[in-house]
Nucleic acid binder design. Structure first.
Lengths: 144, 144
DNA sequence: CCATAGTTTGATATTAACTATCAATTGACA
DNA sequence: TGTCAATTGATAGTTAATATCAAACTATGG
């Protein structure tokens, strides 16, 4: 996401482009696949923007979620975590959590389309989004 | 789940059968499909067992989750919610959350088997469990 | 049935993620 | 560039959940 697309997206929702919001986005872009918590994002942003306040980061993550810049993740570790939302890719993107080592793996899979279609037909529920998490044992933990 | 099966399950994990644990289980059995929070369970248990403490209910829910008596649910409303875990049934049981009215619907669907098989083959990840939530609009909200 | 030991409980203090408040500052637009 | 509403930073407040600890209880072996 470049500066112009970012500004446009904010504007479309009636929000302003601020240095702080840009700085938070930059951290997310620079650290793909890390599933950062708000506090972690805060500490990374402070490296390049020491004046930023924690409350601003909390507010920014809420805003980013609202306008579809991030997905809020829940790995049952007591805080929300975030990843950049990538248009086409994300509808087919799930997480595997290993219950032994607690590592989180990413998975590409498009078989959910079928399920969503069935839910639409059978329950008349229009599916816009989904969250899917699988729990089990990763390859490494299984071998030892 | 009857008294004997309950006691056995606790014993198998090295825990004792207490009046409080039994009282919490009874509330869950008497209120199927309600997705109760810990505080809600606490207030229901108090009706038949006024001396119970809130901390005990929190501890009991943690224990019930550990030994597979309940599923911990996350509907992004700031607290954990719970439902009784039912052996065969539950692996095919998902939730639909309507983003307009916030009602939660239950869905039976077994198409995930296919996805889990693929994850096992492709990523060598042994799937023991999963959590699946769909977000969208329910029939009623779509019609108005 | 009773004594014992280890578990569990209730009350309460504490923690931690997150939100509300508000004066000062900033960004967008005229 | 001036204006004004939006945003920010600091911090107080909230709330779900956990830690602590003495008292009470449960399971077990005698």
């Amino acid at each position: 996401m470049d500066a112009i697309a970012f500004k446009d997206k904010l504007k479309r929702y009636g929000y302003k482009l601020t240095t702080q919001r840009r700085a938070v986005l930059d951290v997310l872009i620079q650290r793909p696949g890390e599933h950062l918590s708000t506090e972690e994002i805060y500490s990374y942003v402070k490296e390049s923007f020491p004046e930023i306040g924690l409350a601003t980061v909390y507010r920014t993550m809420q805003l980013f979620e609202e306008i579809g810049i991030v997905n809020r993740l829940n790995f049952d570790d007591g805080c929300s975590r975030f990843e950049l939302y990538v248009d086409n890719e994300d509808h087919h993107h799930h997480h595997l959590i290993c219950e032994k080592c607690n590592k989180v793996f990413e998975v590409e899979n498009d078989l959910l389309e079928e399920i969503e279609k069935e839910i639409g037909e059978k329950y008349k529920f229009y599916v816009k989004n989904h969250k899917v998490t699988f729990y089990g044992h990763c390859q490494e933990c299984n071998e030892h």
